[in-house]
Simulated assay, not measured.
Amino acid sequence: MTVIALGAFALSTAACGPTTPADPATGSATTSAATSPATTPTERPTTPTAKPTPTKQPTNKASTPTAKPTKTAKPSEPRPEPVVVILRPGDSGPKVRAMQARLKQIGWFSGDVSNNYGSRTTEAIRGFQRKRGFPVTGVTDERTYNRILSMTRMPTEDELNNVKPVAPQPSAAAWDVDKRCLTGRVICISKSTRSLTWVIDGEAQYSMAVRFGSEAEPTREGVFGITWKKVDVISNLYHTPMPYSMFFSGGQAIHYSGDFARNGYNGSSHGCVNVRNMTLLKRLYNAAPVGTKVVVHW
């Protein structure tokens, strides 16, 4: 009987669900933590941790601080060398004279040289310095002095003592001397040497080759004077140009001839004195005013 009762109880409990067995120590029912839904903690989903939003760097380059470059120590600049003065205004002596003579050789000093470093020397040095981009002081420092020495030669005794060189005299072939050409300013024309020489007080200055008229139209000889002159002249008879004409005897004149320049003595003029060196003729034209003496001789 006892067995049956236990079996019915067991069936009853099976239909109604599991029964919590009594705790043998306390006699109270215990709930299984593994099977009781009421006491089983509900496992909540883990909330993902939000990732930190990266901070955007400013795109404006101008506002972005940049690392300052490391300053490099500048090398110390060399100190300028002191200016060594060789000669200065107020100095005197043979060294000043020699420097003036050297400046005269290269056209920076005019007049007689002396021992005194005055205003003329100062201005000459200033002009020399300015031309070469040196500091313009008028004081002859070492740099200026060395440049002058490099451009000149040792002055001669004549240069140091203001002895003017004697101008070389033209050869006999260039100037056939006529005694009528030895006084005053004279245009001396020689038919024998076919040359014209500009003479001042018996000293020939320069000569040029000339051509004369033919036997039918000879160039007249004698002593004349320039009656009138003109740069641009056209011959009334032959309609040819006669540049830089200086008329001395009627229609006969000293003038430039293109034909003489081209053909030389293979031809003749119509009585005029033809010149083929335009440069020397211009020089003579400017030096000889109306009234200048002209001598035409053999």
Rank of each mutant, 00 (worst) to 15 (best):
T121K: 02
Y145I: 02
V113D: 00
G118S: 06
A173T: 01
A101K: 03
E81K: 12
C188A: 11
G93H: 05
V163C: 01
T152I: 14
Q57T: 15
V139L: 04
E159S: 01
R180N: 06
N116A: 08
Y117W: 05
E123W: 05
I148E: 11
G93N: 04
N146Y: 06
R132I: 04
A124Q: 07
P89R: 11
I189D: 14
F109T: 00
V136F: 02
G90Q: 08
D176S: 07
G111H: 03
Y145P: 03
I86Q: 10
L149V: 11
N146Q: 14
K74Q: 13
L160Q: 00
K68Q: 09
R120E: 14
N162E: 01
I148F: 12
V84W: 10
K164A: 08
T70C: 06
T152H: 07
R102T: 04
K56V: 09
S150H: 05
T156Y: 04
S190I: 10
P54R: 08
R147E: 13
R126Y: 06
R120L: 14
W108C: 10
T122C: 08
Q169H: 01
D178Y: 03
R79P: 00
S110N: 14
M151Y: 08
R153A: 05
S190E: 09
D91E: 08
P75Q: 10
N162R: 01
S119H: 08
E142P: 02
V177D: 03
T144A: 11
E77C: 00
S110C: 03
G184A: 07
N116C: 00
T144V: 10
A174Q: 07
Q100M: 07
L149W: 10
D112W: 00
F128P: 07
W108D: 11
P135E: 14
L87E: 12
T64Q: 15
R88S: 13
T59Q: 14
P168Q: 03
Y145Q: 00
R97H: 02
T193M: 06
P80F: 00
L149Q: 07
P80I: 03
T72N: 05
V85C: 06
S114Y: 04
S195M: 14
P65S: 13
A98M: 14
R143N: 12
R194K: 15
P168E: 03
T70Y: 03
I106D: 05
A98D: 12
T140L: 15
K179V: 05
P52D: 11
K131Y: 14
A173G: 01
A124D: 10
T122A: 13
I148M: 12
A73F: 02
R143W: 10
R130Q: 15
D112F: 01
